[in-house]
Simulated scan of single mutants.
Amino acid sequence: MKLPRKNRLRASALGALAVSGALLLTACGSDNNTGGTGGTGTNTAAKNVKCEGAKGKLLAAGSSAQKNAMDLWVKNYMAACQGIEVNYKSSSSGEGISNFTKGVVSFAGSDSALKPEEVAASKTACKTGQGIDLPMVGGPIAIGYNLPEVKDLVLDASSIAKIFNSQIKKWNDPAIAKLNPSAKLPDKPIQSVHRSGDSGTTQNLGKYLGKAAPNDWKYEAEKKWPAPGGQGANGSAGVAAQVKQVEGAIGYFELSYATSQSIPTVKVDTGASAPVAANSENASKAIAAAKIKGTGKDLALELDYATKAEGAYPLVLVTYEIVCDSGNNPETLPTLKSFLGYTASDDGQKALSGIGYAPIPAEINAKVRETIAGLK
Score class of each variant (00 low, 15 high):
P228I: 01
G238S: 12
G238W: 00
K244F: 03
S256T: 11
G238T: 05
K244P: 01
Y257E: 12
Q245H: 14
A241N: 13
A233D: 06
A237D: 13
L255T: 07
Y257K: 09
Y252K: 07
E254A: 15
V243K: 03
A237H: 03
V243H: 09
Q242V: 07
G248C: 04
E254C: 10
G235R: 03
S236T: 13
S236F: 07
Q242Y: 10
G251R: 14
S260P: 08
A240C: 10
E247W: 00
I250L: 12
A258H: 14
G230S: 09
A241H: 01
V239W: 08
G238L: 01
G229Y: 02
L255I: 06
F253Y: 15
G232R: 10
Q245I: 07
A240V: 05
P228Y: 00
V239M: 06
F253Q: 06
Q245V: 09
A249T: 08
Q245E: 15
A241S: 15
S260N: 12
G229T: 08
P228C: 06
V239L: 12
G235W: 00
F253E: 07
G248S: 08
I250K: 00
G248D: 12
N234M: 09
G251L: 15
S256G: 14
A249F: 03
G248H: 06
T259C: 06
L255P: 03
A237F: 06
G232C: 11
A241R: 03
A233V: 08
G238K: 02
V243W: 00
E247G: 00
Y257C: 07
G235E: 07
K244V: 00
S236N: 15
A240P: 08
A240H: 02
Y252I: 13
G248P: 08
Y257D: 03
A241Y: 04
G232N: 13
Y257I: 00
I250A: 12
Q242D: 11
A237S: 15
G251Q: 14
A241D: 10
